[in-house]
């Protein structure tokens, strides 16, 4: 197997009770590259990310993070190994302020230096005392990403970050992802093909719980079209 992989998923199967939703998924995410996973709603993208992050127990298969097997670890242990997962729902703790949200991540990761966070997401500075409940979707996404990059971060899994956001905010996020890409391995689930094409170094296509295509060259990625391929 390739040694340059930051994260590798081998033959993963996941079921919810009786219904199986992920079939033998194998994916490789090279270090310092941006990988994008695309697929229609219900294809199993979220399920894949949750299983990698330890929130779902796979029926079989393994997850290897930088040479370490992390299959079956509890989610907090996975996080402490430097693999962060940002869920799709854009929910931050609504009763806690932005500052308190960041404090919790600092406490968990033992990293109290917020300069990096504020460099990537300067807007958070003015929002420090606002409660999560009163943030906009874009602000919540930024806060979630800010929380995630505290402490060591080798791999960042982000589930549909641009879903439901205004185009100008999407552009801000894309810029932030481009900067982040030089610090860690990014794995994005993205339905917005324009964003996917702009960011992806490689791309996986999922359909009905299976990985059906892997495009590792720019030409293939550029030619991707929604109606035709998804």
């Amino acid at each position: 197997m390739a040694t340059g992989a930051a994260l590798q998923v081998n033959n993963m199967n996941v079921s919810y009770g009786e219904s199986r939703v992920l079939f033998d998924a194998s994916l490789t995410f090279p270090a310092s590259a941006v990988s994008v996973i695309v697929g229609r709603n219900g294809a199993g993208k979220t399920t894949l990310l949750k299983a990698i992050a330890g929130f779902l127990k796979p029926g079989s298969g393994s997850v290897v993070l930088g040479g370490d097997e992390i299959t079956g670890l509890r989610p907090y242990q996975v996080v402490r190994k430097g693999l962060k997962y940002i869920p799709q729902d854009k929910e931050v703790f609504s009763d806690l302020t932005v500052r308190e949200n960041l404090e919790l991540a600092s406490y968990a990761m033992k990293d109290h230096d917020w300069s990096k966070v504020l460099r990537y997401f300067p807007k958070l500075q003015q929002l420090m005392h606002r409660k999560g409940a009163y943030l906009s979707g874009g602000e919540r996404q930024m806060l979630m990403m800010g929380r995630a990059i505290l402490g060591k971060t080798h791999v960042l899994l982000v589930d549909e970050p641009t879903e439901g956001l205004a185009p100008s905010i999407v552009q801000d996020l894309v810029a932030a992802f481009k900067q982040l890409a030089s610090h860690c391995t990014l794995v994005l689930v993205e339905q917005n093909l324009a964003v996917a094409r702009e960011l992806a170094d490689q791309l996986y296509l999922m359909k009905e719980g299976k990985v059906v295509a892997h495009l590792a060259d720019r030409a293939g990625i550029e030619s991707l079209a929604f109606e035709k391929d998804l």
């Binding site: 992050a53 929130f55 509890r74 989610p75 907090y76 996080v79 402490r80 962060k84 997962y85 869920p87 929910e91 931050v92 703790f93 919790l104 991540a105 406490y107 968990a108 990761m109 929380r147 402490g151």
Partner: peptide, 8 residues
């Protein structure tokens, strides 16, 4: 789950 997701 989100709390654990922070590494706690």
């Amino acid at each position: 789950d989100k709390t654990e997701g922070l590494g706690i």
